[in-house]
Design a protein around this nucleic acid. Sequence first.
DNA 1: CAGAGCATGTAAGAAGTTACATGATTGT
DNA 2: ACAATCATGTAACTTCTTACATGCTCTG
Lengths: 165, 165
Amino acid sequence: MSSDPTLTELEGAALALVAREQALTAYEIKEWFRRSPSSYWSGSAGAVYPLMKRLETAGLVAGTDESRSNRPRRVFRLTAPGEAALQAWLSDAERAADAGHDPLRTRLAFVAQMPPDKAKALLHEVLQRYEGQTSPSDAAGTIAVHKSWLEMRRTWIREWLARLD
Amino acid sequence: MSSDPTLTELEGAALALVAREQALTAYEIKEWFRRSPSSYWSGSAGAVYPLMKRLETAGLVAGTDESRSNRPRRVFRLTAPGEAALQAWLSDAERAADAGHDPLRTRLAFVAQMPPDKAKALLHEVLQRYEGQTSPSDAAGTIAVHKSWLEMRRTWIREWLARLD
DNA sequence: CAGAGCATGTAAGAAGTTACATGATTGT
DNA sequence: ACAATCATGTAACTTCTTACATGCTCTG
């Protein structure tokens, strides 16, 4: 940001959330990030409140004060420039094709530095942790993506377990 | 870091690289990160040189000055505590099970906010970009992981293309 | 009506990015 | 010998994290 129209991943996701729900407070957006299964979206107040201020300054969201008592309550809605920026961010194929950050993939890249039984134990434990995931209550589309992603990962891990034998 | 033994992902990967190659300079590590297919590992000097200094201060690598002329040249090797820290980092199942950061997954989570033809176009372009990837010259294990990861992703994307029809 | 925890922030610090500086080395 | 680029950093800035402050609102 900072007068550059390119959104960070956090900013883009926040914008997409506001678009989906029509109207959200910074707190609600923060909570969504916090509940997400990735620690990349840590959902800290120190990240989200300033982020929404940046988006508002950039004119991508409009905040209205909807306090119903003395406590301030700022509700954000998407603006027309915000909708355009969101579409550009969503359809950015270069970003979408990036390999991102994948702690398991990184460790597999160095699996030769581990004793084989430790490597297999690691993969088994990751599988178990995948099982233990409770699907967070969220929009149906988000849940479907996470479910199919988990399924893909399980297949991938089983393939590597077989390869390590 | 900062006297805490828990390594960041960048630190762990740097340590694993040093372990794999026996002896590396900060420059060589930086270049490895830069060539990686993920922009998460941007491979900037401003990240890697201070990082290696941190690892050395923490006693996880030992740097020796191997200048052969006036130019300084610092070569890092793994220490015994470094080996222990590396093994702990590699077999950290909690980190490995984290969903990490995945730009495509994030966009799919908000695919309902996109016009369907735009969504399909995005997935097709990501597939094309995957094709265009030249396998970076690196250790065989790293290449194998990236190849199988790409294959998994292609399958996943084709599944979503079918679902969007 | 007292305590828990909800909601809105801010402050200090960590870790990364881009951009620059500077000297060494290499190719022509 | 000159230019390109390799290699080693450093400086300023951005963004995120952790930790705190503060007042509101709900529940027993």
